[in-house]
Simulated assay, not measured.
Amino acid sequence: MHEGHGFSTRAIHAGQEPDPLTGAVVPPIYATSTYKQDGVGGLRGGYEYSRSGNPTRTALETCLASIEGGSRGFAFASGLAAEDTILRALLAPGDHVVIPDDAYGGTFRLFDKVAKRWGVDYTAAPLTDTDAVAAAMNARTKMVWIETPTNPLLNIADIEQLSDLAHRAGALVVVDNTFASPYLQQPLALGADLVVHSTTKYIGGHSDVVGGAIVVQDDTIADAIAFHHNSMGGVAGPFDAFLTLRGIKTLGVRMDRHCDNAEVLAEFLAGHAKVAEVRYPGLSTHPGHDVAGKQMKRYGGMISFRHKDGEQAAVDLCARTEVFTLGESLGGVESLIEHPGRMTHASAAGSALEVPADLVRLSVGIEDADDLLADLRQALG
């Protein structure tokens, strides 16, 4: 009943009709593992066992599908559980995937250390270069894996253009939409076949729950994901689903504030003597600025920058902030700072996906912008 409504209306209401028994406006936490059946094979409401389905998780999955513009959503115990399910549901030994040459370290590890041993090969390519992606594809390529913006270099891939390229070659397109969130970017509308999220990040938004999601439009793909979702069992528990659904309700207003703050900080960093380069798609100097402006509502809350004085200066900077908390993850209401080379992307060290040693990544929260500016100013010295 909410398909024609705006984003935040759907975020608050899709899959979340008041409880018919009590009128509760928030979906209850169904902390149950099994369900009474009305006779053999007579499932009450379609539920039999909570790995296969749980009403709290159903509410979340319905909402996820709505806000991403898909037909079906699936909630997982983590973003990597969602990614692994995509690989096992849709690929087979001998298949090949093109991945970003600056992919998230956990995604790279999944391909390089897990899927590769299972017989799925990959080639890393700069997704900002369509010709390079085409050159990386071969007769065995069954999937193109897109991150945009990428983690942590904030590169921008043209989803529509890469989807056209992949589909002409008979390959599926997966977009990791974690950095942008469904509020800022709608990959399915741009031609992607699957959208994947770490819902731990912006969707949950409060650094209090780990989760993942897949949203699809095509029924055949959805059926394959659903089978493996249940068969592999990396599903979201009811309390995690409840927390994630709570976070979704404020996603729109939070993202607006994340973007407001990030734009101010990016401009400050771009003019600072200690900063060699700022990676933020909202800056006109960013090479992906025009593409981001075409496919994103705004430019997001993530900033990366390189310290002019090198690796140790970048590490020391991370230790000096007071409002920014030194920590991994991102997308929460609080601002975080980290050194990707030694933290989130350590798994890519020594590989073609190794990140610059002088890089600092900021997850800009929703605190007062003046306090965030003052903190970076003192930390940079």
Rank of each mutant, 00 (worst) to 15 (best):
F74C: 13
T85G: 08
Y47W: 11
S78E: 05
L64D: 04
E48C: 14
C63H: 06
A92K: 15
A82V: 02
G70V: 12
A75S: 09
T85C: 15
L80C: 07
T58L: 14
A82Q: 04
P55R: 09
L91G: 02
L80K: 07
T62N: 13
G45K: 07
A59E: 01
D84S: 15
G79M: 07
G79D: 12
G70I: 06
E83L: 15
E48T: 15
L91M: 09
A82L: 11
G45H: 01
S71Y: 09
F74L: 12
Y49R: 08
E68R: 02
E68V: 12
I86A: 03
S52K: 11
Y47E: 12
G46D: 08
R51M: 13
A65N: 02
S66L: 09
S52N: 09
N54A: 04
L64N: 05
C63P: 00
A77W: 00
F76E: 04
I67G: 08
G45N: 04
L64Y: 06
L80Q: 06
L91H: 07
Y49E: 09
R57N: 13
P55Q: 15
S78H: 02
L60D: 06
T58H: 09
A77F: 05
T56Q: 03
R88H: 08
T58F: 07
A77P: 04
T56K: 01
S71F: 11
A65D: 01
R72E: 13
S71I: 05
I86K: 00
S66W: 00
G94W: 04
D84W: 11
S71P: 00
C63W: 04
G53S: 13
G46H: 09
T62D: 10
L91W: 02
E68S: 12
A59V: 08
I67Q: 05
S50E: 06
T62H: 12
A65C: 09
G69M: 11
R51E: 15
L64P: 02
A65W: 01
Y49G: 04
I67W: 00
L90V: 06
E48K: 11
S66Y: 00
A65R: 01
S71R: 10
R57Q: 13
R88E: 07
D84L: 15
D84E: 14
A92C: 14
T85Y: 03
R51P: 03
P55V: 12
C63Q: 05
A77Q: 10
A89W: 03
L80P: 00
P93R: 14
F74K: 01
C63I: 09
G73S: 05
